[in-house]
Amino acid sequence: MIRRLFLDHPASVDESYGEHFRVASGFGWAMLVGALGAFTHALIPAFCQRTGSNTVKRLHARLTRDPQRDGKRPEFEI
């Protein structure tokens, strides 16, 4: 049960639990920042005009990048 809950999925994407936690947390924080920017833009259209769309583009590029191409999994930055 513990293995299924905590280890099977990270192993399926060639990560340890800690690596998966770091990567998934990075995505989560980026999505929160993008969402806050989008909500700010909804309230005041002159603010954060590209924050949401830039976040989506950056995360899409990160998800679709081939980690085998450069020999290591790229780091995520906010």
Rank of each mutant, 00 (worst) to 15 (best):
M1D: 15
M1T: 12
M1S: 15
R4C: 07
L5T: 08
L5K: 11
L7W: 10
D8G: 00
P10C: 02
A11S: 11
A11C: 07
S12T: 02
V13Y: 06
D14W: 10
S16L: 08
S16V: 04
Y17H: 10
E19F: 06
H20Q: 04
H20D: 12
R22H: 13
R22C: 12
V23Q: 12
A24C: 05
S25H: 08
S25T: 15
S25P: 00
G26Q: 04
W29Q: 11
W29I: 14
W29P: 01
A30E: 02
M31I: 08
L32Y: 01
G34Q: 00
A38I: 00
A38L: 13
T40G: 15
T40E: 12
T40D: 12
T40M: 12
I44V: 11
P45Q: 00
A46H: 06
Q49H: 04
Q49T: 06
R50I: 06
R50H: 15
T51L: 15
G52Y: 02
G52W: 09
G52D: 03
G52L: 07
S53G: 07
N54Y: 13
T55C: 08
T55I: 01
K57I: 07
K57Y: 07
K57M: 07
K57A: 13
K57P: 02
R58I: 04
R58A: 12
L59D: 02
A61H: 09
R62H: 13
L63H: 04
T64Y: 02
R65W: 03
P67T: 01
Q68Y: 06
R69E: 14
R69M: 05
D70Q: 07
D70A: 03
G71V: 00
G71C: 01
G71K: 01
K72P: 03
P74G: 05
E75I: 09
F76G: 15
F76W: 14
E77V: 14
